[in-house]
Amino acid sequence: MTNTIVVTDRLTKRYGDRLAVSDVSLTVRRGEVYGFLGPNGAGKTTTLRMLLGLVRPTSGTATILGHAPGESGATARVGALVEGPGFYPYLSGRDNLRVMARYQRISDRAVEDALTRVDLSERGGDAFKSYSLGMKQRLGVASALLGEPDLLVLDEPTNGLDPGGMADMRKLVVDLAEQGQTVLLSSHLLAEVQEICDRVGVIAHGRLLAESTVAELRGASTLLVRAEPLELALAVSMRVAGDDAVQLTDTGVRLELPEDRAPELARALVEAGADIREIRTAERSLEDVFFEMTTDQEENR
């Protein structure tokens, strides 16, 4: 059994003059929660549509579970919720799932199970059109879960959910991951991805900017120094950590220096006659990294 579930090679989609997705090469491994991260309009949904065989790439290839996108061998083993739930408005939530169960050739018992998993059993008999946005979203997840797919593709699954619903959705994904379910999750909410994903791919303007673990992306922890006079603190910091590893920020001087060198930095500052107000380790959030990356790209365009 192969260990990679999704592999794409320079996947590209062009709509007329507009390059929606450009040379995206990503890998999703078995059993991981992969976060596909990017602002609205970055190309996340188009990429996912290509993976599901709904949209044909202009160039490049994708392999899902060893098959081309859209082949039965791939779609039958992938459960997906892409860009909002799409169901028959006149049918109840339960009947909508029954229709999908017929397509998958599984029994109606699986439908009840899926409804229970997203807490929709009680409202399963109501028409889909009467559902709130959050309920529609949950039905979409239930449909994706039907038939125990090998890969779960969830495109912005917390869209339209209230804070409680978002927490529930995160818990659901974490639960699924604990059972070894492979999940490919797209989101523009960085905090969400940071909490539940093993690895992330960052996409902006159709390009994959980075792909690695959350920890790697955030990088080594940094030291934050507040000391006076500032010029002196800056000079000492550069002498200890090197010119390129020091950055002046609103909150103080940021050094790319491991935590165990903090005492050395403190001694150097004191010896130079600086008054230390604070030295602490500071971790960058994914959000910081993301904004850095997207701003860099913006400048390079």
Binding site: V78, V82, G86, M100, Y103
Partner: peptide, 9 residues
């Protein structure tokens, strides 16, 4: 879109 991701080609 939902139907075409269920399994049948």
């Amino acid at each position: 879109k939902t139907v075409l991701t269920q399994g049948p080609g």
